[in-house]
Design a protein around this nucleic acid. Structure first.
Lengths: 212, 212
DNA sequence: CCTACCGATCGGTAGG
DNA sequence: CCTACCGATCGGTAGG
């Protein structure tokens, strides 16, 4: 890579601030004036980087996607393929919410709730990212099945929906109530759903599954 | 009850429109001017009913709470106490989203995602409602346990978190993708979690639970 | 990247 | 409930 120019660094700093502001104010509530004073630039300085608010929103979503890859996807890929990777991905998601990478929790959870009813490029970008994320969980579940670490009775697509619901449920609970117990709740539910612990307690299970 | 005055009817009509608009624009994005043209009143006409935007937001939340009781809580109470009531409550939630009582799905799911990071009366009203809803699910789970219809290995508070996560997950998926399959996914996950179906398929279960 | 500006809309008020 | 208005902020542009 060539060294980043001053303009590129400024742009990166703007988008970092924008993605953080967006989890608090929303992608629509994020205003150019607010972002200008948060970055120390003038409004028209921002327009030198982004021609319109929608372009800024789309660039912010792309920046948030890269952060999501670094914070959630990559830690998952550091774990060995199979059930460990699926678990590591879920744990990395919870961890990045818990560590307050964004003040408003998961960027995409906030965005999905906000733009669901709208139409246009911003909605489509959020929906596409959400779809890719569900497909990643689904794919990791399939790999775990192929390795014999996850029951083939489980429908990977159904499982991805359930895992994502629990992850976002923990995110919302944590942000709304400042209740860190939500993460433990989600982790427990996920491990149970993957067949990694006994059902609700240490009793009554026929064949406890263990990692190799 | 005395007959509703004209002012009361107007107020009710305003709040109905406001709660619908809020699921699309957000509680903050809901503007007085927008609401004025949606109801055919002038802006100052609205200020005759609500002294400030925050008062309007709080009144809108209260109106949405009453609708939630009618649409979700009451259908649940029509079912007999126990596991049927818990299931009926969950199904009523999914049904009211599916029937698009609000254009943006569940009012409180949208509001919780929006106001989580804010401080003040609006945040507190949404958090209080969310807490009551979780306690209702928890209480219905406890009743099901007392009647021997739900395993006492299950922690009612943990279960309430999981059910709420699945319900909101279906809501968000439906709104974002216009994917009606989300409801079937949530229903399947909920029935499995309650021990009402075999684990992931029709095989391998020791003691299938059935309704009396 | 800046200053200076545009029309539109925001929440809210005066006065009736 | 209305008209008429307030200052502030919105997204965006002209011109440099």
């Amino acid at each position: 890579m060539p060294p980043a120019s001053h303009g590129q660094l400024t742009r990166a700093a703007i988008l970092r601030a924008a993605s953080q502001l967006a989890t608090v104010e929303g992608l629509e509530g994020l205003s150019i004036g607010q972002l200008a004073s948060a970055t120390g630039l003038s409004k028209s300085g921002l327009y030198a980087h982004f021609g319109s608010k929608e372009e800024l929103q789309l660039a912010t979503i792309e920046a948030a996607r890269l952060i999501f890859v670094e914070e959630v996807i990559r830690p998952g890929l550091d774990a060995p393929r199979g059930i460990r990777r699926l678990l590591a991905t879920c744990d990395a998601f919870l961890s990045h919410v818990e560590r307050k990478v964004y003040p408003g929790g998961c960027f995409f959870a906030a965005a999905a709730a906000e733009v669901g009813t709208r139409r246009g490029a911003v909605h489509d970008a959020i929906a596409a990212q959400q779809r890719r994320w569900l497909e990643l969980l689904e794919q990791q579940a399939r790999e775990a099945q192929e390795m014999g670490e996850l029951s083939t009775d489980i429908d990977p697509s159904q499982l991805a929906f359930e895992l994502e619901s629990l992850l976002v449920g923990a995110n919302t609970t944590f942000i709304l109530f400042e209740d860190g117990n939500a993460f433990e709740r989600a982790r427990r539910a996920i491990r149970q759903r993957l067949g990694l612990v006994d059902r609700d307690s240490n009793h009554h299970r026929r064949r406890p599954r263990r990692l190799a």
